[in-house]
């Protein structure tokens, strides 16, 4: 299990990275943390002719809060996200979710952008991006564009980042006041890829009624899904356990899981409901405490 031959280009800046991508056309691939790419290369499942190493790109390594958004540079290590006080404060759901990514050794190298662009449907960061309507800045040579998660995540292992572009930043809206969240994940072993994961965020108005709801599930389709039916069932409600049940009951009809050794399609469908229900419970008890 050894990786195939490739040309190596080290990029110190975004500009250098884009130049290298332009130089090699579609043959080049970005090397970020390498925690998904390198195993695939070791198995020789992917054979990029050129790797553009963006690990030295310092300008994409940042976490900052601006205008109500938590802005994260794409080269930021997952471990930095996990340890950041700013993340915990402004987007605690993200801080919780990142702990579920693999193991510390993985998060030490793995980058935020790398996980997002890899597009694995069970990835925690993608789930949170989907849930919170994160915004993506995609940088091309001389131009940049933004995208929401609906456009960004195309399909299984496919995103909107073109061959000559790199993901520069992802930004998450800060947790609104009077909000609570829940993040639950089912895996067979600690640190595994999720069989299913559920993330929810709820806000309440002054009267204690749910004013906004976000519900999303990973591992139950080719990409993480927002469960709109569940969100609708929650908004305006009092968050009683009957309501939470009813909201979660909307999950199975909206997901589209596959079967494998770790769980049948029926199991995943039902677990999506169960874990959404549990995450809702967590979120609601959090808002009640606030």
């Amino acid at each position: 299990m050894k990786p195939p031959v490739f040309k190596y280009r080290r990029a110190g800046t975004v500009e250098e990275a884009l130049s290298a991508l332009a130089e090699y056309g579609g043959e080049a691939k970005i090397l970020a943390g390498g925690q998904s790419l390198v195993p695939m290369m070791n198995f020789r499942l992917v054979r990029p002719a050129v790797l553009v190493d963006i690990n030295p790109v310092q300008e994409l390594d940042y976490i900052r809060v601006e205008d109500g958004w938590l802005r994260v540079g794409a080269r930021t290590r997952q471990r930095s996200l996990e340890k950041s006080a700013e993340v915990r404060q402004s987007c605690p759901l993200l801080a919780e979710a990142v702990k579920w990514i693999g193991h510390p050794q993985i998060r030490n190298r793995g980058t935020v952008g790398g996980s997002l662009v890899h597009g694995d449907p069970s990835a925690e960061l993608i789930l949170v991006a989907m849930l919170l309507d994160a915004q993506f800045i995609i940088q091309g040579k001389g131009k940049s564009r933004t995208a929401g998660p609906g456009d960004f995540f195309k399909d299984f292992l496919t995103t909107a980042v073109n061959e000559d572009e790199i993901l520069a930043e992802v930004s998450y809206p800060m947790a609104p006041p009077r909000s609570g969240y829940g993040f639950r994940e089912l895996c067979i072993r600690h640190g595994d890829f999720a069989i299913v994961a559920a993330a929810v965020q709820l806000t309440v108005d002054e009267r204690g009624r749910c004013s906004e709801a976000w519900v999303a599930v990973a591992g139950a389709g080719p990409k993480p899904l927002r469960i709109r039916g569940a969100e609708e069932a929650l908004v305006g409600s009092d968050g009683s356990s009957r309501v939470l049940d009813a909201a979660a009951a909307r999950v199975p009809e909206e997901v589209d899981p596959i079967s494998d050794l770790k769980g049948s399609e029926a199991y995943r469908r039902e677990m999506a409901r169960v874990f959404v229900r549990r995450a809702l419970e967590d979120a609601w008890s959090m808002v009640k405490e606030r």
Binding site: F43, I188, R189, H190, G191, D192, F193, D260, L261, K262
Partner: peptide, 28 residues
Amino acid sequence: FYEEMAYDESGQYLTGSFVNYMCPTAVE
């Protein structure tokens, strides 16, 4: 609870990495 070297009915092998051949960790 965890480990199996699994094949599908046609004889294809399904557990060719430590991702799906699951050895227990310290947590389990």
